[in-house]
Amino acid sequence: MTVAAEHRRIRVAGYVSPTRAWLERSLLTILYRVALGLILTFIAAPIVVVFIASVNETQYLRFPPAGFSTRWWEAALTERWMGPTWLSLRLAAVTAVMSSILGTLAALGIYRGSFRGRDALLAALLSPLILPQIVTGAAMLQFFALIGLRDVLGFPALLLGHIVITLPYAIRTVMVSLHGLDRRLEWAAQDLGANPVQTFVRVTLPLIKNGVFAGAVFAFIVSFNDVPISLFLGRPGNIPIPIAILGHVESRFDPAVAAVAVVTIAIVLALIAIAERFARVSEFIYQQER
């Protein structure tokens, strides 16, 4: 018996010589690797040149680099640049704490809740992710101006705005860690006599700690790097570092900015390194983005 009614064998592409097989395999692989290499170069290039430009002697970066100089760093490490950097740091730190508190509570509420409209509520809470941020920023400026609160512009307005855009991230990371939480662990705690507060502090919180922590780190980074909200809500002398850089490079080319940029990258990397000691944060950030 055969699969074909009338037996006729249909063959695969079939035998080729070892050389041909090797070529077939290698050509495609080489092509793929070259493409990959070019793309990765494209991704890495602008970051790498920022580092080089910050210690390059001349104003314009050429190849080969002219020589080593710290003058851009000297220009960068002045009040002109460190003022906004410090403001950004404080802003991001407070934003992270506030977003995490509001976000953790909200995530718990959503996760526990079985009320009607739960999904709609979650969608509403995450909606700032879908709204273009520049629209949110512009709308907030109009709002503050119209209700006569022009005075909040600067740190307070920036803080209020940054919490709006970081809150969804905090909610999402905590939701992710709640999904991995076995509800029966809390039942067990309550069964053993823990009241709801004790249960939360002794059982729930330690178990979702990684998520909360990751959410805070994520909120910090988003706030620290934010442009579209900060664009509208700062005031002269009271602007975060990305906006300070933006305003500066718009008008002239200044390698001091490269040094400032390196400082901001270093701050974020340092934060992640520190956070990583307390919780497995980087994995969460990765998951979150997926």
Partner: peptide
């Protein structure tokens, strides 16, 4: 490579765009 890809989440848009300014300016690399 994963770190490289996630780098944008760590560096501000402003910083990365500045990098392109360095690369693309009339006498840039």
């Amino acid at each position: 490579v994963l770190m490289l890809v996630l780098m944008p989440l760590l560096a501000s848009v402003v910083v990365r765009t500045f990098g392109w300014l360095v690369l693309l300016e009339p006498q840039g690399l």
